[in-house]
Nucleic acid binder design. Structure first.
Lengths: 125, 125, 125, 125
DNA sequence: GTGGTCTAGACCACT
DNA sequence: GTGGTCTAGACCACG
């Protein structure tokens, strides 16, 4: 269910967090669902268990999952809402990027087009 | 003319590159203009000369600037065009970010608004 | 596998870049192969780690290699193609040199012979 | 008669030496001809007199000119022969370059073509 | 004075 | 352990 790109500059643990984020927001993973075990996911992705643990800790910090010692790690009831809130906060990143590109001579329309392309490409899937 | 935020996670040399990029694109620095000397900028920004040197080397690699040992560092004739081209290439980053945010439940309109805010805030200055 | 000539006027980091270029083009290093670590190569060649780092950064900039912090530095999938493309671009250097030598009274045949000597000496190895 | 490119990476004094080399080899300057004065050439090219002096010193070292204190600087009788000899020595540079390019996947034919292009472009002028 | 290279030694985040 | 950034201080060639 998860795929990681070891060649990417994005830290592996962050890739895992992002993908869980996406799966929950898309409704593929639902509140109450159990996450794979740290050791299981470690072998499945051929990734160091420490890295998986770091991702899970981050997911817990963000409130997307609740770890129950001895039982496992479960998607939190309000995960989707939290993710949506976090998404809105990240609009600031887009604002910063847009400002930078605008200062480099990219037009408002070109940026709107890029956003539309992204949205449409996602709708198709 | 340049300002550095030492607390930022963005490397100092990258901050310098970005700011020169902006100044050239805005026409504040023009082709043929001489950049501040490595040592001069070093003391002005209280940054190690090697860090400035790294920024200047990067600017040269990108073709924004031509460094002439013993003479100085000058804005290249086609710097603005190169910067614009690089800006268009970076639209891919915006597409990736937009896709991610969309998957987190952010709407197309909210993203368009973010772009518009960025453009308008820059126009005001 | 790499050898450095500290007495040469060619910067050490450029020597490293050139040699890796050669090894990859010759198929001795293949896509996906891991480069020696910065520190490891540093002690092996008795060169400062910063110098190695500079070489690796340049290799990354040229797309021959992808550096993954915390994991290592790996030969890029399309490294050989990029190197070949760069080689063709550098034919311009040969043209400039040939023109200069011709103006100094060196004949076309003498230059062809020099090229042939170089090619043959490389084939023998 | 001489033209220098301040933006070039090639040192100004070397540009001057090369151009005098070319003019003599082409027969435009002949043995016995007087070189421009250091001060005169300095203002004509808008170049620091020290730089001109350095070029003249190098020309003298190579035996292309003989400086007569108080009278001036004159093209040596055997200048053309010396230049031709130097040209042949520089075939080594071409050999090194050819070997490098060959190792980067450039073919023998492509290099021969580059040499021919250079020779032909010079013949046309 | 200029840019460019190198060494030495430190710190950071990530695996 | 890895790569990446930064500081401090030195040396070089060029103008």
């Amino acid at each position: 269910m998860l795929q990681i790109d070891v060649m990417s500059r994005i830290p592996v643990y962050e890739q895992i967090v992002s993908q869980v984020e996406r799966l929950v927001a898309a409704g593929i993973m639902s509140p109450g669902d159990q996450m794979p075990s740290v050791r299981g996911l470690s072998v499945e992705l051929s990734v160091n268990p420490n890295t998986i643990q770091k991702a899970y800790t981050e997911l817990d910090n963000r409130g997307y999952v609740t770890s129950v010692p001895g039982k496992g790690c479960f998607i939190a009831p309000d995960a989707a809402a939290l993710i949506n809130r976090r998404g809105k906060q990240r609009l600031g990143e887009m604002e910063v990027l847009a400002k930078t590109l605008y200062q480099m001579g990219v037009t408002r329309e070109e940026m709107h087009d890029a956003v539309d392309r992204a949205v449409d490409s996602d709708k198709k899937l």
